[in-house]
């Protein structure tokens, strides 16, 4: 059995000098840029992180029987679902604007990208403020049994990720306004948008789980 199984055809002629230096820069190779691949891998770990929290949520919810558990019936948040729905909508829209930013820069349209990014950041901030407001309205806290605990740890850490995403996009916006991105070089925008979409998807799961089911 030959070990010389090649990944892309016959081994290239020996490049010699600095062929690896090229590698270091991550250029001269087709496919994803290093930051994008890195972000995708990092998101795998993020999925596992939320996976852990979700696992806790499910096992506690199942073992609790009625949900909210006895004594916590007052916490029924299904009642006032309107506001969080609006937040959800905002986040979904922001995902869209974020993607628009990517499309724009791919076509080299810096102004368009900056506009879209700006919009995304604003929506993100609004979401965060809305989330905080929501917290003040709920009338229960992280210390209120497994219901309060799971609710706040899930939404709280999602919020933290939104904040992280906002900061990332903010940096993109800043660098964008300095005109540091071009149709060729905008890996950071690509990476940040992937992250933003991920955060958005997580929220949709959360929303469905915490408010609807």
């Amino acid at each position: 059995m030959s070990l010389a199984t090649t990944e892309h055809g016959i081994p290239e002629a020996v490049g010699g000098h600095g062929s690896s230096a090229h590698g270091a820069a991550g250029h001269g190779k087709k496919g994803l840029g290093n930051p994008v691949l890195g972000m995708l891998l990092f998101i795998v770990s993020e999925i596992m992180f939320f996976g852990g929290l979700f696992a806790a949520y499910f096992s506690l919810r199942v073992s609790a029987g009625p949900w909210p558990p006895e004594g916590n019936e007052a916490f029924l948040i299904k009642e006032h679902i309107l506001f969080p729905s609006i937040l959800t909508l905002l986040l979904v829209i922001s995902s869209l604007t974020c993607q628009i930013a990517v499309w724009r820069i791919r076509r080299g349209d810096r102004i368009g990208m900056n506009r879209a990014l700006m919009l995304t950041v604003i929506l993100g901030v609004v979401f965060l403020i809305g989330q905080l407001y929501e917290y003040t309205q709920l009338g229960f806290g992280v210390a209120d049994g497994t219901f309060g605990g799971t609710f706040y740890i899930l939404t709280g850490f999602h919020g933290a990720h939104v904040l992280g995403g906002v900061l990332m996009l903010g940096v993109c916006l800043y660098r964008g306004s300095l005109g540091q991105f071009s149709a060729k070089h905008h890996d950071m925008v690509e990476a940040s948008s992937i992250y933003w979409h991920f955060v958005d998807v997580v929220w949709i799961f959360l929303f469905a789980l915490l408010y609807l089911v």
Partner: peptide, 10 residues
Amino acid sequence: RMRAPGMTLF
């Protein structure tokens, strides 16, 4: 991403 030319996975 950064294997030298010829350094296939296997």
